[in-house]
Structures are given as C-alpha cells and as structure tokens.
C-alpha cells in the first residue's frame, strides 16, 4: 500500500526544548494509526507539523507526496484539534456550511449533521452546545471537505459516554472507506479498539510500533491479582521465583510475571493467605506503562 504520510528524520526544537527527535514514520493509505505517549511526549507537536502549522527544525515531511501546506494537501486533510472554541453568533448549520464552502468537494450538509448527531441542534447557536456536542461539531468540521486524511487530536476529551460511543461509531464508518486516520488519545481502550497500528512516542522518539496485539505481546507480561488476607505480609512474597514486579494497593496485590502458570502453582504450594485470585493477560494500558517505564530507565 502506498504511504500517504511520510516523516523522515524530523526534529523539532523550540524555546530550548527538543520536542521531537529524529522521528521517521510511514503511514499507509486506509490505516487507522494511534499515536500514544505520556503528556509532553511530542504527539501534538507531531500532529501540528503534519498539518503544516509548525515547521520542523530538521527533516522532511510529505503529505500525499507534497508539502503539508500546499493547496492539494489542504483539500484532502481534515483535523480535530485541541483547544479550539466554536465560532460565536453562528448556528451549527451555518458553521458547517461555512466550512463546506472552503472545499471543492464537500460532504452534503445532511451527512455532516448525521455523523455528528446534531440534526436536532442544527439551528442552535454553536456557543450554546454542550461540551460533547461542540466536540462532535468539531468532528463534522474536520469531515466537511470529505478528507482523505483525518487527524483526531484527543478527540473524545470532554465527551460524555453517549457522545463518545456515537463518535467512535462514526469514525469506524469513516475508516472503512479508504480514509487514513491518525489519532492521539489518553484513553488506551479507545486506541485498542479502533486502531490497527499503534505507535508509542516518549520524549520525542518512537519507542514501539506495531498492531495492538503485537504491542501487548511484545511486553510478554501477564498478571495475577489477589486480595491479601491478614496473615500475608509483603515479605512473604519476597524471594518467590518468577515474580517480575509486585504492586500493593491497600490489600489488593498485583504480581507481574512472564510465566503466570508456574507462579500460580508456587503461590498455592506456599499456602499463602490469599483470596479472589485472578489471572489476566496485560491490556494495552499495562503494555504502555511498561514501555514508558522501561524507556525511562
């Protein structure tokens, strides 16, 4: 598949900080890619550069074969950015029509109202919408030009559960039609369920890149959690073979291990005072935490 977004050895420095370091990426057409990373990892800076809002200090960025700020790219790209307020004294419908006028082949108004679920609110002033509705309006504006590439920067911040569900349903429907989607999010379960590729960024560098399953498997960690009884003291667990990490939260204990089958046998054999035992494969959340911590060491 052709690469629609290319970053080659991109560096971004400003005000003395090195926000992005030697970042190289190839994103293929029709994929949904999630950029994950802790706050300040360089996700938003990366998206800003891909959109041509910021220029890289070094390196090259190509969008659909050209520079991000040229007219062809502008026609084919849509984005939900963070911290953008809605425009005052215009209705939902007027705002959508304004954005539709910028593009050569806009999506029909009815379609935009449907994917944002704002049919009933179309004649309300945009400023009177709730936080979640405003975010859905932002989504409609991002989709106004029927973009080939869609950037979603923390799209569900401020959405309630209902808005969030509706939103991901719409995004999934969009992704099916050959659109390339790049998203950043704090909600890892969202990335896990929608993305077919996850790129973990920390301190401006890529530290992991693969499908959600690969990222999870690469960490190879499974977990045993249980409730510790009165008799169990932290030192009772010390020295047991096969425990990679132990975390106490009150009486709740989480053990991480590469071989939970062997570890559970050990725990039983030692006849420890534990109950409510659960064994689970680590989620994306755990893989992510392990990656970030591993990178910091």
């Amino acid at each position: 598949m052709p690469s629609v977004i290319t970053m080659e050895h991109v560096d971004k420095e400003y005000k003395g900080t090195h926000a992005v370091k030697d970042l190289s990426l190839h994103i293929e057409e029709g994929t949904v890619t999630a950029l994950l990373g802790p706050n300040g990892a360089g996700k938003t800076t990366t998206v800003s550069m891909l959109l041509g809002l910021q220029k890289p200090t070094r390196g090259q960025i190509r969008i659909l074969g050209g520079s991000p700020d040229q007219p062809e790219a502008r026609q084919s790209v849509g984005a939900m950015l963070q911290d953008i307020s809605v425009i005052d004294r215009l209705t939902v419908r007027e705002t959508m029509d304004l954005f539709r006028s910028y593009y050569v082949n806009p999506l029909p108004l009815a379609h935009l109202l449907a994917i944002s679920g704002l049919e009933k609110e179309q004649n309300k002033f945009a400023t009177s919408l709730s936080g979640g509705q405003k975010r859905r309006l932002d989504f409609a504006l991002a989709m106004a030009g029927d973009p080939k590439i869609l950037y979603l920067d923390e799209p569900t911040v401020g959405m309630d559960v209902g808005s969030r569900q509706l939103f991901w349903e719409s995004v999934r429907a969009m992704a099916g039609k050959g659109r390339t989607i790049i998203l950043t999010t704090h909600y890892l379960d969202e990335a896990d369920s929608i993305a077919d590729r996850i790129i973990v960024i920390n301190q401006g560098k890529v530290i992991a890149d693969g499908t959600p399953a690969e990222i999870k498997a690469a960490q190879g960690h499974k977990m045993i959690t249980f409730t510790a009884g009165e008799q169990l003291r932290p030192d009772s667990l010390e020295g047991l073979p096969g425990i990679a990490d132990t975390v106490w939260s009150g009486r709740k204990v989480k053990l991480t291990s590469t071989d939970t089958d062997q570890l559970i046998r050990t725990l039983i054999q030692h006849n420890l005072d534990i109950r409510d035992i659960e064994i689970s494969a680590g989620g994306l959340e755990d893989a992510f935490q392990t990656l970030i911590q591993g990178d910091a060491k």
Binding site: L51, L53, R74, Q75, A79, L81, I84, Y102
Partner: peptide
C-alpha cells in the same frame, strides 16, 4: 483577538481558505 486566542485562526489555517 478572539479568533486568534481561541484557536479559530489555527483551524482556518489548515483549511484550503
């Protein structure tokens, strides 16, 4: 002032306008 501080200008910049 409003449109610059509230990010609207940034959003307009990524459109073909």
């Amino acid at each position: 002032a409003q449109e610059r501080t509230q990010g609207w200008v940034r959003l307009i910049r990524i459109t073909p306008l």
